[in-house]
Computed example of a mutant assay.
Amino acid sequence: MLETDVLVIGAGPAGSMAAKHAAMGGAKVLLVDKKSEIGAPKRCAEGVSKDGLKRLGITPDPRWITTEINSVRLVSPNGTDVLLDEEKVKLSEVGYVLERKVFDKHIAMDAARAGAQIMVKTLATGIERTNNHLIVTLEHMEHPFQVQAKIVIGADGPESRVGRWAGLKTGAKPGTMESCAQFEMVGVDMKKSNCIELRFGSAAPGGYAWIFPKGDDVANVGLGVLTPRTDKTAYQHLLEFVDTCPATQKAQPVELNVGGDPVGGLYKDLVTDNVLITGDAAGMVNPLDGGGIISGMTGGLIAGEIAAKAISNRNYSKKNLKEYQKRCQKEIGDSFKKYLKAKEYLLSLSDEELDSIADAFQNSDFDRISPTDLVKMLVKVSPKAMLKLGKLF
């Protein structure tokens, strides 16, 4: 049986950040991932903000940046578009389109350099509690073994089992898990090579469609839908979208990614005795735009710091770990509550109402652009939004 202070399950960006900061805090750390290659397959559109990376202390590296973004195009159902350009507007929530297969390894390598041990192709299959420790059963290359850990950090994605094993009430509620499908495509005809394009309306019921450029004529083209709002799969909606979108009608897919995106906000319970959950496993996904890389890494950083502190204090109780819950709520959860209200409002709009809002946006002046700024402008141009959201923003 192996022994460690902190076992992190899942080596995505959130898990690797947790492992890195736990190790930096002096804890003995083991980071495991069920995949044979960290970062593959990718599960998102790969966009991150410059400000977010800066807050996390991560220096941009050309090895994992495919495109630097300088504008965003918002497109309504009838094709009306609103272009938000960095020359006129501060784009605080966009910055780079990543190559996740490189980026995720980069963050995991940072964890290793900080002192964490890494094991790939290692699947966690169960957790048992014994005295003041946890015994975790795993399989490495189909060979079972056990790890005794003082703290386990679950960063095992939206299908997380760690939280459930620990008795936490995790998992997305009905109607809060978007089903997503995405192609990486070549031959995409983009109006601007450094512009993210977001398309709203019935093409993606309950969500939106996106085009994230990755250099030359390559782009991530995908969408997310809420299954209660459609009788089609996300993949079927994606096929229809690429057939009808002017930018993708002549493009060809070279990769397909599918998965779930929990957009119901931060989960209520993130800790129990000896256990923390973080990243997608904790619902750290912006309900409004579906982005979760920066927020998940923020949660991972906090989890690592709190775990190292608990190891130093030799106190792994739920009461002692509650500081993690409080910090996550303040730094992530409070804003997510507002974004969830904004999303509920947007879901109530018809295609015609979205078109009229796009018309109003074309005549509006923006100083900066972020989810909060967009909603504030929405409140200004839409009487209905004023009634629903005015007090929140």
Rank of each mutant, 00 (worst) to 15 (best):
E3I: 12
D5C: 07
I9H: 09
G10I: 08
S16M: 02
S16D: 04
M17L: 11
A22C: 03
A23N: 02
G25L: 03
K28C: 01
K28L: 03
L30P: 01
K35M: 09
S36A: 14
A40Q: 07
P41I: 10
K42V: 12
K42S: 12
A45T: 08
E46K: 09
V48A: 06
S49H: 10
S49E: 11
K54M: 10
G57L: 00
P60Y: 08
P62L: 14
I65P: 03
E68Y: 00
I69P: 00
N70W: 13
L83E: 09
L84Q: 02
D85C: 04
E87N: 13
E93H: 15
G95C: 04
G95P: 04
E99T: 10
V102W: 06
V102D: 04
D104K: 01
I107R: 03
D110V: 05
A111N: 05
G115Y: 05
G115C: 07
M119A: 12
V120C: 11
A124R: 06
A124H: 12
R129E: 14
I135L: 09
T137P: 04
M141W: 08
H143R: 13
H143D: 11
Q148F: 01
V152M: 11
G154Q: 03
D156P: 06
L168Q: 07
K169D: 08
T170N: 08
T170H: 05
K173F: 10
G175A: 10
S179W: 10
C180S: 13
A181K: 02
A181V: 10
F183E: 01
M185W: 07
D189P: 09
K192P: 01
S193H: 12
I196M: 11
E197R: 12
L198E: 09
S202G: 10
G206N: 12
G207A: 13
A209F: 10
P213F: 13
D217E: 14
D217R: 15
G222H: 01
G222N: 01
G224I: 04
V225D: 00
T227K: 04
T233Y: 03
A234Q: 08
C245E: 11
A247K: 06
A247V: 03
T248F: 11
P253S: 10
P253T: 04
V254I: 15
G259P: 07
V263C: 15
V263I: 15
L270M: 08
D273L: 07
G279L: 08
G279F: 00
G279K: 00
D280M: 00
A281C: 02
M284W: 11
V285K: 12
G290N: 13
G290R: 11
G291R: 09
G296P: 05
G296Q: 06
K309A: 13
K309V: 02
Y324D: 02
C328H: 03
Q329R: 14
E331K: 12
S335I: 11
F336N: 05
K337I: 11
K337M: 05
K338R: 12
Y339P: 01
K341H: 08
K341V: 08
K341A: 15
A342F: 09
K343W: 10
Y345L: 06
L347A: 01
L349K: 03
L354F: 07
D355E: 02
S356T: 12
I357D: 01
Q362I: 00
S364K: 06
S364D: 05
I369T: 07
S370E: 13
D373G: 08
K376P: 00
K376D: 14
L378M: 15
L378F: 05
S382I: 10
P383Q: 02
L387F: 09
G390W: 04
L392K: 15
